[in-house]
Nucleic acid binder design. Sequence first.
DNA 1: CTGAAAGCGCTAACAC
DNA 2: GTGTTAGCGCTTTCAG
Lengths: 326, 326
Amino acid sequence: MATIYDVAQLAGVSPATVSRVFNGVGVSDEKVAAVRQAAEQLRFTPNRTARTLRRQSSEVIALVIPDIENPYFTEMARGVEDVASEAGYSVVLCNSDAQVEKESTYLGIAIAEHMSGVIIAAASERTDLTAIRAAGRPVVAVDRGVGSDVDEVVMANRDAGRAAAESLIEAGYRRIAHIAGPENIETATERAEGWRRALQAHGAEADPELLRFSSFRVDGGREAMEALLALPEPPDAVVAGNNLIGVGAIQVLTERGLTPPRLGVAVVGSLPFTTLSPTAVTLVRLPARHMGVTAARMLLERIAGDAQPTRTVVLRGELQPASVLR
Amino acid sequence: MATIYDVAQLAGVSPATVSRVFNGVGVSDEKVAAVRQAAEQLRFTPNRTARTLRRQSSEVIALVIPDIENPYFTEMARGVEDVASEAGYSVVLCNSDAQVEKESTYLGIAIAEHMSGVIIAAASERTDLTAIRAAGRPVVAVDRGVGSDVDEVVMANRDAGRAAAESLIEAGYRRIAHIAGPENIETATERAEGWRRALQAHGAEADPELLRFSSFRVDGGREAMEALLALPEPPDAVVAGNNLIGVGAIQVLTERGLTPPRLGVAVVGSLPFTTLSPTAVTLVRLPARHMGVTAARMLLERIAGDAQPTRTVVLRGELQPASVLR
DNA sequence: CTGAAAGCGCTAACAC
DNA sequence: GTGTTAGCGCTTTCAG
């Protein structure tokens, strides 16, 4: 690998001049041309490691998510990536697997690798941001708040939960269950809260049996749905707490011949790879990509030195009611 | 951030000794203890950038994939990640978006950041590996071969295509179409070849109209399925070239009331988030995770200095025939 | 087993 | 505008 010294020698200038050419500061046109030509010839690529060591910062941001296999998070990742690469930053995607330990490891790497900032969808409420904050790195929390005082981009979860439940009520369902995510995750409890309020507001039955906390995964949705169907008095509709829970619940229903809308289903999130008729299920689509875009912009502002008080952006889901009714 | 000098001073040893403690070479027990204690106290984390600059290599591998939103690739990513992190490596996930330019950018970053190696699912046959190879970094190709002479882990695509088509033939379908991926991607053409052979072997109709090249995405599957149904003599079954094509095709079928098995469907790949009864569609499940695991192990061997001739590992799909027949 | 010292490749003062 | 030079924090000979 060629270095700036090789280029400098070939171009007949000093290493500093080569560096300047690659960093856009005042160099005379002839020298710029000479340097570029020499660099070309030697296939010179600036060594980012050396630059990072010297500058004490790198154009890399870390994106830490709890489930890389969930399309909701990968869609968000696309948003982050688009904004970041536009601004000359690369994104490294870290999968915490919803484990606080793995998450800490990645946060440690982000510090040790001098990454410029972190966007994180926290694994749980126990997520520990003290080290990364102490290192002075900007952090933006997405999807879920974290205890600390950092910028946040979250969804209007309560509203989403309420809209999903109300859509079902309006469609005439009377006994509406809710399969929520883990009880220690803010998004899950907020959506559940929205569901509860919708039922109360419409004088519908809010049987505690009808609320199930599970995992934000397909098998979580399956298990909870099975348990609900096994109830002495099963529900006639269900609100799924996220996309994967929705998939699991609908799988079970399909296997039992209860395909929506025979049993009403509303999902907080999208069903990206559904093979179901898109009109049979109510969706509250969450703008995942937009969340990523917003978070990335905020992070870049912070990296650029913006020191205003922390902000919280709340994004709204879009109701797409089922058009096929039972 | 504390450095080894701070730790050395506090522990009363030399910086070299601190370095040795953190790299597991012979240091007396007392000094090890002193250093560890000092490091703890100062919350010292080794600066990876400096280490990388000095060592000319970092414990990071790049995983370049064409579509981060495709569960097939994220599942593979999990496999890579598990093996890598076990071995103390981190994985940075790069989304080439099936564009050769983006892919080159990431490959350039991999070089400039001194990453130890690359696992790549090539964007197309035009993928250019010369720079990364010239830089002496080990490369493993996954899912699709690349022109160059590198280790490969691929699927038995021809067999998968054949098995999918044969399953449909055995179920009694007579006019079996195939929606393939892009014509310039090896996996697509090989699976199509398998489909063709199955039809020929069973004396079935191999109307060229029935073969459609599209994209490996949901909309590709949708468009091709619609075109097939618009044919004067539409097919009675279809082999989808990958998971997302399968989703798109089934979506269209569902909208037209042709839910499988009314029109037979076989998919090369899995339908991870399907809400369909799992027995209505034939699947040739591809071991994506295993592909990632294998590729990561091979790469790690190369990084460790293994210089044997390049290997190609072919992984076999698993047929899971539809159990509900028409 | 341990320490001194020389860089890895680059950038940023500081001179000229 | 341009060159000289001193590190960024770490590893790794080379002595001892």
